[in-house]
Design a protein around this nucleic acid. Structure first.
Length: 434
DNA sequence: TCTGGGGTCCTAGGACCC
DNA sequence: TCTGGGGTCCTAGGACCC
């Protein structure tokens, strides 16, 4: 059986998946008790779409990704509390949850901002469901974040267990699918779209094969499924059968690409504004590079118009390459300006722009070039960048920045309903009384 | 009568995730 | 007026090599 990625193990592995409930909404509730038990949504960047909804908001029929301006009436009528996203807060709360989970097992994969896989293999003689309850209760008490815990012999089954716990409140927030008898009662009732890795397109393809439930997918012929869902689909079947194909990734692999892209708060028609925005995004992505010890081999600058309206449409992009891989802000800014000059077309109403670094290398392993700056000059530039990063670290992001990134920033995203950074800024500390 | 065999690397596009 | 942002993986096909 040709199943790359990870080694195949059977039997003794046990995975736990801890997932924050409506995570961003829960973060907002931790420091604002008035938000308990009321409908609440958190919006995407630019206050565009609903990307997190409390149970009460879900009950009102507000769906993931609903554009805010389309649900505004329902929001008003039902007094739904609305927040712009506050990633500083959510990131810090995520870190607190992770720290708490480390009390329960040393082997953790931080899978996303609100989900972690736990290796529970050594706990097989314990009552796993009871251990799951202990985890939930501790995370709740120490961080204020409610979670659900799914447990299974493979990552895919742990994910499915988590889904089950979320959809069956009577289970108390924990579902253990390590027992195959338990799986027999649950899997036939779960629709195939609940499976990790099965999206819209795969649901349609599986329907043609007559596969609608998770139990049917597990019993399906792996070769037939591979025909339409590739090796990914075949791996899912094995995982559902309890054959582990996906390992716990405790060490974050080196990332392969990096990007900073944003919509504009208002349509941009002036090239100077576009240059500012691209420069600001480039400045940010360069900081991210240095924070991770990486350097960019190339850069794609892009800008495009609004695809949702009748404005004349234009998608522009330009590829730029430095002499050698770099993490230097001024050098990347030079490339970005080149990019804008090449892609800009007068007369369009631009909606979004961004900078993508598709190929990254470790800076200390980069291929050197004859044509780059001399080493002594590079060392000076590195010290300058280190100093700027240190100042911005100490006094807050954006304390000093290249003038090219603009002062007024009329193009900036909307973020009109943002909560304070309760846990990361002294000025924003929550008050117990006024 | 009528053109080999075995590779690698790169890219675009599709699909999926949170 | 108004619709997010940042990632990963897989495959097919083209280009190229000997």
């Amino acid at each position: 059986l040709d199943i790359p990625q990870g080694s195949m193990k059977t039997g003794e592995s046990v995975f736990g998946l801890v997932d924050g409930n409506n995570f961003y909404c829960s973060c907002e509730r931790v420091f604002n008790p008035k938000l308990a038990n009321v409908p609440l949504v958190v919006l995407s960047n630019n206050d565009g779409c609903a990307i997190a909804r409390s149970q009460e908001a879900k009950a009102l029929g507000i769906r993931m990704g609903d554009p805010f301006f389309l649900i505004r009436d329902r929001v008003k009528a039902n007094n739904v509390r609305v927040f712009s996203s506050n990633y500083t807060l959510y990131g810090d709360m995520s870190r607190r949850v992770l720290t708490t989970l480390q009390e329960f097992t040393p082997h953790i994969e931080a899978y996303s901002i609100d989900e972690s896989f736990l290796d529970l293999s050594g706990f097989a003689d314990k009552n796993l469901a009871a251990y799951g309850q202990e985890i939930r209760a501790t995370v709740r008490q120490w961080t204020g974040i409610p979670t659900c815990v799914g447990i299974g012999p493979t990552k895919t089954l742990a994910k499915l267990a988590n889904w089950t716990a979320k959809h069956h409140p009577e289970m108390g927030g924990v579902c253990d699918l390590t027992d195959s008898q338990e799986r027999e009662t649950i899997l036939p009732a779960v629709p195939v779209e609940a499976v990790w890795g099965i999206g819209r397109a795969s649901v349609a393809k599986l329907a043609k094969l007559g596969v609608r439930t998770v139990a049917q997918l597990r019993e399906a012929d792996p070769r037939a499924v591979r025909q339409s869902l590739t090796v990914v689909g075949e791996r899912i079947i094995q995982e559902l059968r309890g054959v582990s194909c996906l390992n716990l990734e405790e060490i974050e692999p080196q990332r392969k690409g990096m990007a900073v892209t944003r919509s504009f708060g208002h349509a941009v028609t002036e090239k100077t504004e576009m240059l500012e925005a691209v420069a600001a995004h480039t400045t940010r992505v360069a900081e991210k590079l240095r924070a991770t010890g990486l350097a960019a081999v190339g850069m794609i600058v892009f800008a495009h118009t609004n695809r949702h309206n009748a404005d004349p449409s234009y998608y522009g992009s330009a590829v730029c390459e430095p002499y050698e891989a770099t993490d230097d802000t001024p050098e990347l800014l030079g490339l970005a300006v080149q990019g804008v000059n090449r892609l800009w077309r007068d007369g369009f109403r631009y909606k979004k722009c961004g900078v993508i670094l598709p190929d990254l290398v470790r800076k200390d392993e980069r291929q050197r070039s004859f044509f780059a700056l001399a080493d002594a000059d590079q060392a000076k530039r590195s010290r300058l960048m280190e100093t700027i990063d240190a100042i911005n670290q100490k006094w807050g992001r954006g304390t000093i920045f290249p003038a090219a990134a603009g002062i007024e920033r009329n193009w900036k995203i909307r973020s009109e309903m943002k909560s304070p950074c309760f846990t990361t800024r002294f000025a924003d500390l929550p008050q117990a009384r006024h």
